[in-house]
Design a protein around this nucleic acid. Structure first.
Lengths: 148, 148
DNA sequence: CCCTAACTTGCAACTTTGTTGCAAGTGCAG
DNA sequence: CTGCACTTGCAACAAAGTTGCAAGTTAGGG
């Protein structure tokens, strides 16, 4: 489950408006769904939730809005090691990067922040002269419940 | 580019035979391509190379062989942050995990091993009681050449 | 408050990537 | 050499995402 977001609700909407991007009924609905999600959603799940709010929202609009958010660095795209299929999952870009651990048996996704993780990124920037814009650390294995 | 493999050529084939898996002409060709690749290949690239060796090799066989190798933990599947499209890239599972840094401008992929990376995994295993089977660390940004 | 240009949407058709059922072919243990 | 389980190729399918275009909507300037 994503970490609780500390910013005010509507932060994604605000971020887009600040960038001079036009706000529409459809976008407001999709942004709201992403902001209030209690778990990582894929495009199909976002569409299903959106349709319950406004039956006319189209699949294409969901993809286009996700593309917009990605281009602006406002969401991260995960694949969670394809444990649940070929699609992608989305989460608001967090203040601080974290890892995702997906259980290969039960499918549960845990998140984990770590200073060591931040330090690896620092090392890559320094030692490889690489300017990091996105860092995705995805782990698969057995969670504490399934491991026994 | 993948790290040079220190094992003898044919190691993938040997690994499958040891597991009692039947060897076919098609599998030998596909394994050879993966073993001698100088960069990460996706399914379509593997198929193209395979067809040059034996014109009858089928797309489906490539996917099934990749699935077999994945199930046996002999290759890792990467998406390199989808900088080059929606597909997946494959590499022989290395002795030691490494990160992949994909340049968002020129598309070049660098690899990097790090003690800190190994230590993060140790931390996850201990602190989260999570038994790691796969760890994928993918970074996107600008490489030293494109950064200036 | 209204006009208008620029942007956004929905639709349908399409592309790409990967999967499946099945008949025919093949590897390999005995 | 033989048999049978395993593998292949084919064709059809499925899932995920993209594109062109006509119609609809947003928001800034007058």
């Amino acid at each position: 489950m994503p970490f609780p977001q500390t910013e005010a609700p509507g932060a994604l909407q605000t971020a887009l408006l600040t960038r001079g991007i036009r706000m529409t009924k459809q976008r407001r609905i999709i942004l709201g769904i992403i902001e209030t999600a209690s778990q990582h959603l894929d495009a199909a799940q976002i569409l299903r939730k959106a349709v319950r709010i406004d039956a006319n929202i189209n699949r294409v609009t969901v993809y286009r809005t996700l593309g917009l958010l990605k281009r602006h660095g406002l969401v991260d795209e995960l694949d969670l090691l394809h444990v649940k299929g070929e699609g992608h999952f989305y989460e608001r870009r967090p203040q601080r990067d974290h890892m995702h651990m997906t259980c290969l048996r039960c499918g549960k996704v845990q998140e984990f922040e770590s200073d060591l993780f931040d330090r690896v990124k620092g090392q890559v920037e320094r030692d490889c002269h690489f300017h990091i814009l996105v860092a995705r650390f995805e782990i698969g294995g057995y969670c504490s419940g399934c491991r026994k």
